[in-house]
């Protein structure tokens, strides 16, 4: 075949196949758009239900009074979520107070120290991020509740540490590693000790990304049910005592969801709205920190 014939053949094939190619391209892109639209359906449904059903629960009374058990004579008497808010605050606050320093120091250790031990711990942390949270609940139950025969709010905090510390640590480590070498070498060349370099140069430079991980981990932990369900007991009184029993927003939702009264199931939406707003608040915070690091 001569060059001219080849060219002719290619041009005719190209022209002939064009309609089919254009059509299949259009069908394919249409399918992608449909996939995108379908992806929004569940989000819309969840938001519509959480906000639609939940908004009427958002009253001062609901947020501040404690839960009540409905009775045959008062099937709608579910009270409020004051005790669950208090319980959530106690359990999560203690968890954060333990997790943040532990995770940051752990990340620092992984940054400074080399060896198999560090690799092992890091691998464990990365794997923990993906583990089903129920196994941490099972572990906390058997190692704390079974041995002490008691339920405490702070047991829940310890269980949540297993959710938070891995996420915070891996993020903080990535943050420390993203600090430019030149900055660190400048510090070292001034004769600063390693601890000074870490505390005065590396950590401040990595701060925003470290906090991203902190808020990300927290927004995940706030909504966790499985790890704390078996270890914090339940409390219908609004108390802030870490060694008392506690009910949190997710565990209250769980007990209402499997509860006997329709009014309890309906109230799940109200709690869900409060929970979603809390989770979103911290998630948005983490995004703001991400945006900040990307700008700098």
């Amino acid at each position: 075949m001569s060059s001219q014939e080849r060219r002719e053949f290619i041009r005719t094939t190209s022209a002939k196949s064009y309609r089919r190619r254009a059509l299949s391209s259009r069908v394919f892109t249409a399918l992608l758009v449909i996939a995108l639209l379908i992806a929004f359906v569940p989000l819309a449904s969840i938001l519509q239900n959480v906000v639609g059903h939940g908004i009427r629960y958002i009253t001062w009374h609901f947020l501040t009074t404690s839960q009540q058990l409905p009775s045959i004579t008062n099937t709608n008497g579910i009270g409020g979520i004051g005790n669950a808010l208090a319980g959530t605050a106690v359990v999560d606050l203690i968890a954060v107070l333990i997790s943040i320093p532990t995770a940051i120091v752990l990340a620092m250790a992984m940054f400074e120290i080399k060896g198999r031990w560090v690799v092992a711990v890091r691998t464990a942390m990365e794997t923990f991020i993906g583990l089903p949270s129920i196994v941490f609940g099972v572990f906390t139950y058997v190692s704390l509740v079974v041995t002490t025969h008691q339920y405490h709010a702070y047991f829940g905090s310890l269980a949540l540490c297993f959710i938070m510390i891995p996420v915070m640590t891996i993020n903080a480590l990535a943050a420390l590693q993203s600090v430019p070498d030149t900055l660190i070498e400048a510090g070292l060349s001034l004769g600063l000790r390693p601890s000074r370099v870490m505390l005065h140069i590396i950590l401040p430079a990595a701060r925003a990304r470290v906090f991203t991980g902190v808020f990300l981990a927290f927004s995940r932990a706030v909504g966790e049910t499985a790890p704390i369900l078996f270890v914090i007991g339940a409390s219908t009184l609004p108390g802030f005592n870490p060694s008392g029993q506690a009910t949190t927003l997710p565990t209250l939702m769980w007990s209402y969801l499997i509860g006997a009264y329709p009014s309890q199931r309906e109230a799940c939406w109200g709690i869900a709205l409060v929970l979603m707003v809390t989770v979103l608040f911290f998630n948005v915070l983490s995004r703001i920190f991400v945006a900040r690091t990307q700008r700098s």
Partner: peptide, 19 residues
Amino acid sequence: GLRFIGVKDKDFLEESAHK
């Protein structure tokens, strides 16, 4: 490129690759 525009003939493709 030939496959993109719809050429399927195996001999033609081989010849084109060679050329």
